[in-house]
Nucleic acid binder design. Sequence first.
DNA 1: GCAAAAGTGTTGCCCATACACCCATGC
DNA 2: GCATGGGTGTATGGGCAACACTTTTGC
Lengths: 232, 232
Amino acid sequence: MTRQVYDPGAYPPFAVTVDIVVLSVSHRRLWVAVVERGSPPFQGLWSLPGGFVEPDEDLESAATRELAEETGLSPSQLEQVGAFGAPNRDPRMRVVSVAYWTAAADLTALRSGSDAKAASLAAVERGFTEQLAFDHSLILNDALDEVREALQTRPVATRFCRPEFTITELRGVYEAIWNTNLDPGNFHKKVTEMPGFVEPTSRLREGGRGRPPELYRAGPAQRLDPPLSRPD
Amino acid sequence: MTRQVYDPGAYPPFAVTVDIVVLSVSHRRLWVAVVERGSPPFQGLWSLPGGFVEPDEDLESAATRELAEETGLSPSQLEQVGAFGAPNRDPRMRVVSVAYWTAAADLTALRSGSDAKAASLAAVERGFTEQLAFDHSLILNDALDEVREALQTRPVATRFCRPEFTITELRGVYEAIWNTNLDPGNFHKKVTEMPGFVEPTSRLREGGRGRPPELYRAGPAQRLDPPLSRPD
DNA sequence: GCAAAAGTGTTGCCCATACACCCATGC
DNA sequence: GCATGGGTGTATGGGCAACACTTTTGC
């Protein structure tokens, strides 16, 4: 990157970081990837994976890189939650963090990162989210609000599923993130009749109890119209 | 703000700015506040109002301050659009900008700022938005997408109106921002029957042609349920 | 056969739209 | 009266929730 010369004192210097909210659904619950902090501040506490943006690095690339370094994950799509820049959010220096969220279908790939931080999954439940380092509880809650909204109008639920999934698995994503129960029959109709949301593969998943369910894959739709409404 | 000592070379230094998308509806059209750039880069082009965040300043406070300095406006509520940080978005240095949007009811207060930049209103129309400095076209389009969404589920339309307004004026906000025509009768019922959206003042606006309309003020609702659906 | 899970059909209600109609003013 | 804009009433149709019912497996 080529730059013109400029006076380094002409603007106040900030550090810029990225933090990533990696969400996953399994065992009918919602989980978030966290790493243990190995050094002060907040040493020993859990935090969201993240780190400094390099001088010539795109924000989203930085998020992808930090996520791979700290958790071994390479998720498909990152979506920005927003910028968090309260003057005292980091006691060491002035830091503005740009937060992203992403969905992971399969978190067996989660491992501790190259810098020896312990990576783990935490259940997203009341009480837990208040124990994160920095303002990461705030970031997580903002991300959750966005995801809950996004499930209504955009086909993001399929990102929580493996490439081929059953309608019941898809419903489980909604139920875990919305913390509700949905009518299986009505959900099945609504989702399969929504143009472009899911596509049939004409294959079945064998091995479970009961009638073997059909397998679907994500369709090309960018919007869900009409939106799936969240029950009260 | 008290800080521990730290090595200034331990993280890459960034500049952090804020940019503000001030939107307003008048004469059945949507307008955005812009300022003329008085110095390079992009000298002479229009840009969104904005500027550097001070070392101990909250991001939203910085947006409020810059807006007052450059346009004389003091809008009620700022909402974050997101962070924009492509490595080459500013040719001088690495800058991450945090963008906000806000609504203004009455832009007669718009004036050129203390630093002698010309402040003006630009009609939001196809073609115009491509001529802004930096990546401000991108920021504006993201803000517009957010506002169009927000109109459906949150009572943000009243922020575009003066403290007392008519239902027709409120409908004009929706029509200008969505670029559609809404049925006056159905809109009136939907809006007045939505709990907490608008409250009657039992006063009338005199002076126009036709039957004098009733005046309303914004109600306490935080969400519009069910959402106002945008026509195709 | 029985239980369990997947998927389909049916019914009734709610509500949004389309549009006709009435109201209150200026001229 | 007539035009203009504000506001209300009404009927029809589509969609969604509730829930009964059928299908297909394991045991």
